[in-house]
Design a protein around this nucleic acid. Structure first.
Lengths: 155, 155
DNA sequence: TAGTAATATTAGTCTCATCTAACTTTTGTC
DNA sequence: GACAAAAGTTAGATGAGACTAATATTACTA
């Protein structure tokens, strides 16, 4: 099991994994842009990640993830994707909100909760009428109900 | 809308709200114990919360929440309860895990996601066979499947 | 009411994560 | 190959949140 990283450092490896793409490499400036952070902050983060053997880092050079870093990044990206899907597809939040919520929550849940959420999503994929369609229908009914309350007043 | 608090300060008002009970008051030592934090840390947090008008605080005295603090604490406690229920009742995590995950996630989701989760839970309460019972059944089946794979080997 | 025990605060330090400004290294172009 | 632009790093500062050790205040009790 790789050592625990702070939410901030997880954001960095996540960004590196996303930016690295097929070449497996990125530049500090791209990381800074992706995270909306200054370049010196990236330098600091890369040193911290290098000391934890998560990135291959040499000053003034290109950056790549180590095997450990890749494993950790994959886990974070997995959580992100699952949470985003849950917020958007199941709860019906719009994509942007779902994604930004996923960005924060991904650092707060462990593997067990994540695994269970995966199973839950798989269940709903297999039985869309049972929960997904059902809940969408239910949500619509609640919205109508709210609108009616609005229209006719609460008292 | 009350100003945003850090995750840490939200933990403090949450603890204060929980400890205050009917009297509406607590002591710094109890807050420290509840959060597993030193007493000086509580002093610092109380000053920060007082400057944001979230607590009534005077040195060497008893602590209570202001109206704003109570509102904010209620919102955090609501998120906590909802998340905890979701993790435990829907995803099937044990109570302790559900609670500790809720403790972290409660600071990461906003009101909209929370409201949608409430509606989702309400839906499932009304149609237990649709999703809750269904998913529990589904989970059992997956477990059996895993055990069978285990038993007979993967290849 | 004096003295001790419990409670709370100050003082000083640490780690993280961020910033700006200034400097250095690398890169690309003529 | 020299030199400007781009990219990266140092240096130094800030703010949040935590800690321990020492000090101050309050409360209890004999």
């Amino acid at each position: 099991m790789s050592a625990k990283l702070s939410a901030s450092l997880e954001d960095y490896i996540e960004a590196i994994a996303s930016l690295a793409g097929s070449s497996g490499e990125t530049r500090a400036a791209d990381i800074a842009d992706a995270l909306g952070v200054s370049r010196p902050s990236v330098t600091v983060a890369l040193r911290a990640l290098a000391s934890r053997k998560m990135v291959n880092y040499r000053p003034y050079s290109i950056v790549s993830l180590t095997e450990d870093g890749r494993i950790h990044a994959t886990a974070v990206l997995r959580k992100h994707g699952i949470l985003s899907r849950f917020f958007n597809e199941i709860l019906g939040a719009d994509e942007q909100l779902a994604d930004s919520a996923a960005c924060k929550v991904e650092h707060a849940i462990g593997e067990e909760i994540t695994d269970r959420l995966v199973e839950f999503l798989a269940f709903i994929d297999n039985c869309p009428m049972a929960a997904k369609g059902g809940f969408e229908y239910h949500s619509e009914r609640r919205k109508e109900f709210r609108e009616e309350v609005e229209k006719y007043g609460k008292n």
